[in-house]
Computed example of a mutant assay.
Amino acid sequence: MTTQQATFAAGCFWGVEAAFREVKGVVDVESGYTGGTTRDPTYQDVCGGRTGHAEAVRVTYDPAVTSFEDLLDVFWQIHDPTTPNRQGPDVGTQYRSAVFFHDAGQEQAARAAKERLGRSGRLPRPVVTEIAPAGPFWRAEEYHQRYHEKHGGGCAI
């Protein structure tokens, strides 16, 4: 099986991870930090708001079963892409909405999907989702992995 990766930030990574784990064709999902400047940040570093990182998930998927576009559809449905640096009660740059693309095809698909969503009239405000190249992904501490499975929830998405 040949797999591909996609990286998304949509608020607290616990619920985002759980949502992507439900998608047929998703092989693995890891919670972590990306989009910032600090090497190997901790949760406390990221929550301090000075690293530039977002709480994010790295999705490994089988493109023979699900497409990047299918993953984008899930991404748009599980969070509010119109609130800058916020999802529900969680506030800060680490909770921003972002697609971190791994290749030109993902970038093109993300930009097109964002534009379609913005023109759809479904949302009360403009879509503020950042679309940026994927950089280093720092896996979050083990207690964040599969958080919903271990603890039955935690943050709202």
Rank of each mutant, 00 (worst) to 15 (best):
T7A: 03
A132C: 06
R39G: 09
R21P: 02
P63A: 01
R111W: 00
G153C: 13
P133V: 01
E115F: 13
Q145H: 08
T34I: 08
R146Q: 10
G92W: 01
R125V: 00
G36Q: 07
A109K: 05
H144D: 01
A156M: 09
W14G: 02
R50A: 13
V16G: 03
V65C: 08
E130W: 00
T34K: 07
A112S: 15
D62P: 03
A6N: 06
P84D: 04
G36N: 02
T7V: 11
H102I: 12
T51D: 11
T37Y: 02
H102Q: 13
I78L: 14
C47G: 11
D73P: 04
D80L: 06
R50V: 15
T129M: 07
D40K: 12
R139C: 01
A113Q: 09
G35Y: 02
P81G: 11
R122Q: 02
V91N: 07
A6W: 04
R86F: 07
G36L: 03
R122S: 08
G49V: 08
T60D: 05
R21G: 01
Q5W: 13
G105Y: 05
T7G: 00
Q5I: 03
P63K: 01
P41N: 03
Y61V: 10
G49D: 05
I78P: 01
L117A: 11
T129R: 07
H79A: 05
